[in-house]
């Protein structure tokens, strides 16, 4: 995968208040995303429809998607990092995977 920014859209911002971007195509580790004049270098593969941090976000930050809160970070996240179950938890009911309940259960 090229490390130069691509012209085709790779991520979208769904709402101006959002602090995450959504991938609209699978993105490989090492890719550089150019969005709103800012470059994000991916330190992991990102599948279609996943989230990456729009800026550095400390633990406890409410993640906004569609301009609405979708949970809180339980660890620090750098700009361009993947935001998913390893750092984001529900503020309502904990999610679960086939292996069991997600980390960051609000009851913890």
């Amino acid at each position: 995968m090229s490390s130069t920014p691509s012209a085709a859209p790779q991520v979208v911002l769904l709402h101006p208040d959002d602090n995450v971007l959504i991938s609209v195509t699978p993105l490989a580790r090492g890719s550089v995303i150019d969005f709103e004049g800012r470059e994000y270098r991916l330190n992991q593969d990102l599948a279609l429809g996943h989230k990456l941090a729009r800026r550095d976000l400390p633990a406890g930050t409410k993640i906004l998607r569609y301009g609405a809160p979708i949970g809180s970070l339980y660890s620090d996240v750098k700009a361009g990092e993947w935001v998913h179950m390893h750092n984001l938890k529900s503020d309502y009911l904990a999610s679960h995977t086939r292996q069991g309940r997600a980390r960051g259960d609000s009851g913890e």
């Binding site: 599948a47 949970g71 935001v83 179950m85 529900s90």
Partner: peptide
Amino acid sequence: FGSFAPGNADGGLTTLEE
């Protein structure tokens, strides 16, 4: 459990409210 299936997470959804 909330109404959240493992496949939702595979597809990039992290939380029930998302």
